[in-house]
Every structure is written in structure tokens, then in C-alpha cells.
């Protein structure tokens, strides 16, 4: 059933696949992100309670959703690597990791910035912000673990185990934090940060979500390409690629 995937265990094929997909990812990014951001920030109605500041949800919500999504993608790549012993899967995992960490940071930053007009303070131990913060720690752990190994194949396996341990924990952490939050803070705040998303707001939000997803995919793919080239520098096919690069400007 998964046979069609197997050729991409070879770095050369994975690199070619990246080249095929990348233009589509960039195209998707341009279309969805520009439409979604303009619609959301200019044309969508403002909230009756939060006025213009509600528009930050067009950045905050997609990045919060996709920070979790990127972590799951990373864990899936790690699982593939551990089960089938693929070098490219570990490379994919580590290509996604810093991108996911940055997206998590964006979610945290926009969340904090949103909190200022809403709650009058930059930071509040609200459930979503807290679990995003812990998610950022998990990302940093995976990246740091990858960094300390000299042998990057070994590093990939080790970081992969950590990513899997993390992904089992992400839902546990999320629900425990939500539960902890309601226990300590009561329900007074949680109503404010979840405005009822009406239709005119939903569509630009979904388009922004797609735009962010394409953007993350595109950046991860670029990172994967450079990871492959860096790790396989001495292989004949990379050497050939580099020598061709003088003629065509297509590569890397």
C-alpha cells in the first residue's frame, strides 16, 4: 500500500520531489496568503467587543493551529524514519523542526500582543498561551538534541524518539493545561479570547490557514533541500548538481 513512498528513501529522489513540489508550495503561499491577509485585515468585519484588535486572529489562530500541526508532521516523519530506517525521513523531521518552532513563537507573540488590549497585560497564564509555551520548549528540546550529536544520522534517530515522546505528550499537556487553567482562573477570561467566529470571519481565517500551511511547507522544503545537499556533499550526484549549477540557475 505504501510502496509508492519507498523511492523517496533515496536522497536523490527526495531532492527531485522537493524540486517538483516547491513551485506549487510557493504559488499556494502567494495566492492564499495575500488573499487571506488582505481580506482579513481590511475587509472582514471588526468584532463588536474587541474592535480592530480582533484582526490579529488571522495571524494568531493559523499559527497556533499549525504549530501543533507541524509538530505532528515532524513526529510522523520521525516515525517513518524509525520504522523504515530512512535517512530522508529524519532529514525531513529536522527540516520542519525550526520552522515549527518559529511558528510557535509567532503564535505566542501574537497571543501576547492580543492580550495587551484585551486583558491590559502582555502575558497571562491562559490555557492556549501556556500550552503554546510548552510546545515551544518541546521544539527547542528536539532541536537541541539534534544539535549535540556529531553524527547527524544518529542525531536524527535520537531527536526522532524525542519528537515521538513529545507528540504523545502534546494532547496530554494541552488538556492538562486547559484543566489547570479553569481550575485556577475560573471562566471569566476564557470567554473573551474565543470570540464566536461568524461566517464573514471564518472564510478569511480558513484562507489564511491554507496560506500559512503552504508557507510552512515551502520553507520546510527549502530547508530539506539544503539539508540533503549539505549531508550528501561528497556524493557524486550532488557534485554533478553543483557543476551543472554553473550553467542553469535552477538548482538550490
Amino acid at each position: 500500500m505504501w510502496k509508492w513512498l519507498h523511492p523517496y528513501a533515496k536522497t536523490e529522489n527526495a531532492y527531485a520531489l522537493c524540486n517538483t513540489l516547491l513551485p506549487w508550495f510557493w504559488a499556494g503561499t502567494c495566492v492564499f496568503l495575500s488573499v487571506g491577509v488582505v481580506w482579513g485585515l481590511v475587509f472582514a468585519p471588526q468584532d463588536y467587543q474587541q474592535f480592530e484588535s480582533v484582526r490579529i486572529i488571522y495571524i494568531h489562530v493559523p499559527s497556533a493551529i499549525l504549530s501543533m500541526g507541524a509538530y505532528v508532521a515532524m513526529a510522523v516523519a520521525a516515525l517513518v524514519g524509525i520504522v523504515w530506517q530512512w535517512r530522508t525521513a529524519f532529514m525531513t523531521m529536522i527540516a520542519i523542526a525550526p520552522v515549527g518552532a518559529v511558528v510557535t513563537f509567532v503564535a505566542l507573540f501574537t497571543g501576547a500582543a492580543w492580550g495587551k488590549p484585551m486583558w491590559g497585560t502582555w502575558w497571562i497564564w491562559d490555557a492556549r498561551l501556556t500550552s503554546e509555551l510548552i510546545l515551544l520548549f518541546l521544539y527547542i528540546g528536539v532541536i537541541a538534541l539534534y544539535g549535540v550529536f556529531d553524527d547527524k544520522q544518529q542525531a536524527g534517530k535520537a531527536a526522532g524518539v524525542m519528537a515521538l515522546v513529545g507528540v504523545v505528550n502534546v494532547p496530554i499537556i494541552h488538556y492538562s493545561v486547559v484543566w489547570w487553567n479553569t481550575l485556577h482562573q475560573g471562566a471569566s477570561i476564557s470567554k473573551v479570547d474565543k470570540p464566536d467566529v461568524a461566517d464573514p470571519m471564518l472564510w478569511p481565517l480558513l484562507i489564511c490557514l491554507a496560506g500559512f500551511a503552504f508557507f510552512i511547507a515551502a520553507v520546510s522544503t527549502v530547508r530539506l533541500k539544503s539539508e540533503i545537499v549539505r549531508r550528501e556533499m561528497h556524493r557524486p550526484w550532488v557534485q554533478k548538481l553543483v557543476s551543472n549549477d554553473g550553467v542553469s540557475s535552477d538548482a538550490i
Binding site: D150, D151, K152, Q153, R231, E232, M233, H234, R235
Partner: peptide, 8 residues
Amino acid sequence: CIKRDRLL
């Protein structure tokens, strides 16, 4: 055998 991305 590949060690540290070097083909041994």
C-alpha cells in the same frame, strides 16, 4: 556504512 555523513 555511513558515519558522520561520510561513506566509510
